[in-house]
Amino acid sequence: MGKRVLLIEDEPNIIEAITYILSRDGWDVLSHSNGEDAVEAVAAHAPDIVILDVMLPGRSGYDILGDLRRGEATAELPIMMLTARGQARDREIADELGATRFMSKPFSNAAVLDAIRDMAIEA
């Protein structure tokens, strides 16, 4: 099990925070800040885990999740959804679409770290 995480997020400060947290734990963090070509980015980087924001410029995170789950290579890929909307309905949608984890912003750093570790073990 590799240690590569792809963070798809458009907010620079959040990218920086998550990258910092995960890197310190030994993860190899890549980031991508656009929704439109996020699926291609996943294919290109072949990450072990994906952190996917919902409100992305260009394309909704849910659409990207749906595409990834339909893709053969990414159907089982551990994906954690991240959203600033944080309503119950958003969690449901994420579950239905096959998200591995769901986390609302703001989050505690420990929770993100735990979730990524768990996902790596489960996978």
């Binding site: 907010e11 400060n13 912003k105």
Partner: peptide, 8 residues
């Protein structure tokens, strides 16, 4: 929530 996330 977005700025709060960074702040937290």
């Amino acid at each position: 929530r977005t700025p709060m996330t960074s702040i937290r």
